[in-house]
Structures are given as C-alpha cells and as structure tokens.
C-alpha cells in the first residue's frame, strides 16, 4: 500500500490515528512499539483465557510481539488480519502445539481459567485435553467415524461402550452431522466429503467438552454450502463453548463472532465487539482492512 492511498483514506474517514512516525502501520513496519487498541466492553466480560505480554520467536524472527488480550467466556472471538500476521501462531500457542517445532521460543504468559499454560510444571498433554482444535484442512484420522469422534476418550483409556456411544452421539449432534452419518458410524471417516470431514473434526474437538474450542480457518477449504453449515453450527455452539476462531473471511467474522481482534505483523492492533470493529472502528487501519482497502 502506498502513502497516497492512506492519505486519501484519512481524508475520507474521521477515525483517529496515532504513531510517532506518521501512520501506525508504518510505525509497526519500522519496528516501533505500538499500543493495542482494546475496547472497554471487553472489561465487563467474564474471561476464560487471558494472554499477557506474549512474545514468540521462530529462531531469530519474532512472530508475535507483546500480545495482551482476554477471551470472554461463552463467546465467539474472531482473529482477523492479513496472511502471516501471526493469527494461527497465536492460536497454536494457546494449546502449545508450537512446542512441536524445535526452533520456537516464547516469552510472556497465558492462563486458562486462572491456571497457567506456560509455567514449567504444566503437563502439556493434560492441558491440551482441556481444549479442542479444528484445523484449516480437515484431518480425520484413518479410522472409523465413531473412533475418530471418541479418540480423545480412547486415549484417556475410556472403555465403557455406553459412555462412548453417548459422547459420540452428543458430539456428532453438536457438530450438526449426526443425521448424515448415524447409519454408517463404522465406515472410514476418510470416505466422507470435505465438509463432512471438517464437521467430524469439530465433533472430535468437542467430544471431550473442552473449555476453549480453537478453530484455525475451519472453512477455508470448503465450498459455500459446507461453510454455511459450519457457521450455523458455530452459532449453535455459542454460549455452550468458548470459541476462538481464525478467519480470512470478513463476512464470516462479521456474521458469526461476538468479538473481533485485528492483527498485523505480529501485533494486536484493535480488539473489540464485532459490530464496532466492522462499522465504527477506532483506527483507520482496522477500517481499511475490514472494508477490504488493504491486505
């Protein structure tokens, strides 16, 4: 983007901008620290996850800069921002999937329901059991639909058929796919269509009744009809589960989330109620991004 377009944008919109050297985005690009713009409505919410001064490096490259935010309980929070801005990295930091990458270093702290995520004596495996995660590309395991859904119970050693059946049905209903697969639970999950596979993965993620459901662009590989179904499902899960969703699709963020966080180059820029972020953001950069003027 050029300074010219920014100036034009500034001329048109009456939103505030700040920054030592010209615009906020230029300040970020030149490595200056900028304060995140966090709306006061968030303070009233009951938080389930809080992130404090979180930094992350891939080797020497810093991917997340001093992120501080809270995720309200029982709400859908969307993370938006251009490619490479660190949304997915942040999401994967919540359940410590980044631990699998050798070169990753972190700084700062996160807490889930008051208990630390990154302190030394945390059992990562137990921690991950408290969260569910849905990935960008559906990744059902090479086993039956039934076994896919009850996977997290199986690894906990659950053998009781009644419990497993119950969880399986509840999760599949929750993921709005029960009616489509109830007669072929023993078939391989790999034989389903892409949209169905993704909903199986969601059912798997909610099977263990997670405290937070993390979704990493769950609809990016799906057609509009399948996307619709998943959005309906997210609406239905709202309230029961806390959902943190990364999306590239502005309409999706606007439609299905309660709060939206806009990230850029590893920084949290603005975070507030979705309506405000999309209709009346405080920062011009946010408005430019959500209206599609840059990114």
């Amino acid at each position: 983007m050029t300074a010219e377009t920014l100036e034009q944008a500034q001329a048109r919109t009456p939103v505030q901008t700040r920054g030592a050297s010209g615009t906020r985005l230029e300040a970020i690009a030149s490595g200056e620290e900028v304060r995140s713009e966090i709306h006061p409505q968030l303070k009233k919410e009951d938080n389930i996850l809080s992130i404090e001064n979180f930094n992350l490096w891939y080797g020497r490259a810093q991917a997340l800069h001093d992120i501080s935010m809270t995720v309200p309980k029982g709400k859908v929070t969307a993370l938006v921002g251009p490619s490479g801005c660190g949304k997915s990295t942040l999401l994967r930091s919540v359940n410590r999937l980044n631990d699998l990458i050798d070169i990753v270093r972190i700084g700062g702290e996160m807490t889930l329901n008051g208990s630390s995520i990154y302190s030394k004596n945390v059992d990562v495996i137990e921690l991950r059991k408290r969260m569910g995660m849905v990935f960008q590309k559906s990744n059902p395991f090479p086993m039956s639909i039934y076994e896919n859904v009850v996977y997290s119970l199986r690894i906990d050693g659950e053998r009781n058929k009644k419990v497993l059946d119950e969880v399986c049905e509840r999760s599949l209903r929750g993921a709005a796919i029960w009616d489509e697969v109830k007669d072929r639970l023993q078939d391989s999950a790999l034989g389903l269509s892409g949209g169905q596979q993704q909903r199986i993965c969601i059912a798997r993620a909610i099977a263990a009744e997670p405290e937070v459901l993390l979704m990493d662009e769950p609809c990016s590989a799906l057609d509009p009809i399948a996307t619709n179904k998943i959005e309906d499902m997210i609406d239905a899960l709202k309230g029961e589960y806390t959902i943190l969703i990364v999306t590239h699709n502005m309409q999706q963020a606007a439609r299905s989330s309660d709060y939206t966080a806009f990230m850029y180059l590893g920084r949290l820029i603005e975070y507030g109620p979705t309506d405000t972020i999309f209709q009346n953001p405080r920062l011009i950069e946010t408005q430019d991004y959500v209206t599609g003027r840059f990114g």
Partner: peptide, 14 residues
C-alpha cells in the same frame, strides 16, 4: 501428514 499428528496432539494424545 503432519496435520494428522497435530490433530492427535491437539486431542491431548501423547
């Protein structure tokens, strides 16, 4: 595929 491993780790598998 690493996506399968990650899926399993995300479910809390060792």
């Amino acid at each position: 595929p690493s996506s399968m491993r990650e899926g399993s780790y995300a479910c809390g598998a060792s």
